[in-house]
Amino acid sequence: MPASDVRRWPKKAILVKIEDTYGTDAAPAVADGIVAANVEFTPMEGQELQRDLIMPYLGNQGVILTGLYARLVFDVEIAGSGDAGTAPKYDALLRACGFAQTITADTSVEYEIVEDAVESASIYFMLDGVQHAMLGVQANVAPTFDITAVPRFRFTCVGLLGTISDLANMPAVTKAGWLKPVPVTKANSVMTLHGWTATGDSLSLDLGNQLTPRFPFGDEYILISDRSASGTAVVEARSLATINWFEIAKAGTLGALSFVHGTTEGNIVEITAPAVEIGRPTYGQTSNVTTYSLPLAFTPDAGLDDFKITVR
């Protein structure tokens, strides 16, 4: 019979809450639970300082661990909150990515990029009886809409090491307040790119936040030190008279993108970008239908507007 304290890999929970003060534990609770998928967790990343001692014999001299932090990566389904003008359950994660939240009552919640006064989060990651606290968390987000998969955000979270401790019980996180996502289909999803209403297979985006752990003497923090938003659209190939991606790419022309997913109020997520540059198109096929794979560079227009996420 196995020992009573054997830990089961599938039993996980994630709690996320915005911090009032950077790096001070916000003590996320069950109500702050995140329903996630495809979780990857690295409990200790950092540096190993080699001692390189000269001794009259051979052997491993060990290392000194320093600059330690944790990394948590996971997917969250893309859906609304159920009520237009109410923030979705993944709100804190988007804010830790450097988005500012603007709520218009009964209408929408907009997430627009900020670079100053970026909010941070505390995350508790529980793995069957052991809790890892991450503090001062900053994050990156990469949304994907694909006709063959559930639409999802991919979050990468980096945080300072907090307390690692045993838990008496796992938190009672439920799916309450989490809407079931709708599939990416003609009925549910509309994309326009450079003025063309697209027919396609997928759209992937990556905010491209560079998450930099810093451990100078006198301080320690995680910094979003740079950003370069990019993506890829896979669309059906049409005649050049309809849309000539080769000329658009050669000219470096900038154009707008809009992707609206969902049709029911309270469960609509929209991503917009004003100045998207098309990279070198490549050919592909889906079921013998010719496609283009279009690299996308989300450039700022007025600044801080690489792309915007609206939940409504």
Rank of each mutant, 00 (worst) to 15 (best):
T253F: 02
S230W: 01
S230H: 03
E247Q: 12
G208Y: 15
R227N: 12
T192K: 04
G262S: 10
M191F: 05
Q210S: 13
R238T: 15
G162I: 05
V260W: 00
N169Y: 12
E265M: 03
W245I: 11
G162F: 07
E270F: 00
L167I: 01
G252W: 10
L179V: 06
T174Q: 00
I222A: 04
L257P: 03
D166P: 00
I268G: 01
R154E: 11
V276G: 04
N267S: 09
F155I: 05
E277Q: 13
V269R: 02
A229G: 12
T192F: 03
G208R: 03
F215T: 07
P183T: 12
F259N: 04
P181M: 09
H194R: 02
P213D: 06
G218V: 05
F246T: 13
N244C: 03
G208E: 08
V190E: 08
V269E: 06
L223Q: 14
E277Y: 02
R214G: 05
I243H: 07
G266C: 05
R154T: 13
G255K: 03
A198D: 10
A229H: 04
K186D: 14
L179Y: 03
L240M: 11
T263K: 08
S202K: 05
V184Q: 00
F153G: 04
P183C: 06
S204P: 01
L240A: 13
K250D: 15
D226F: 05
D201G: 08
N244R: 02
T212Q: 12
V184D: 03
T212D: 14
T156C: 02
S189N: 09
P216V: 06
I224N: 03
K186Q: 12
P183S: 12
V235Q: 01
F155G: 06
F259C: 11
L207N: 04
I164M: 06
M191A: 13
L254P: 00
L167K: 04
P213V: 07
M170I: 02
T242N: 09
T174P: 01
N169D: 15
A241G: 14
A229R: 00
A172T: 13
Y221A: 08
F153K: 01
R227L: 10
E220Q: 13
E265A: 14
A237R: 12
L257I: 12
F215N: 07
S204T: 14
L179G: 01
N267A: 10
A187E: 14
L257F: 06
I243C: 05
A176V: 14
I222Y: 04
I164F: 04
S239M: 09
D219N: 13
G177D: 09
G162M: 06
N169V: 11
A249M: 05
T156F: 02
P216D: 11
P216A: 13
D166W: 05
D201V: 14
S189P: 03
G231A: 02
P213E: 06
S189W: 01
S258M: 11
T212E: 15
V173A: 04
T197E: 14
V235I: 15
T174N: 01
P171Y: 08
P274A: 10
E265Y: 03
A249D: 05
P171E: 12
I268Q: 08
T163N: 11
A172D: 15
G266H: 07
C157R: 01
T264V: 15
G218M: 10
A251N: 13
S258I: 10
M191E: 08
A241W: 02
E236Y: 14
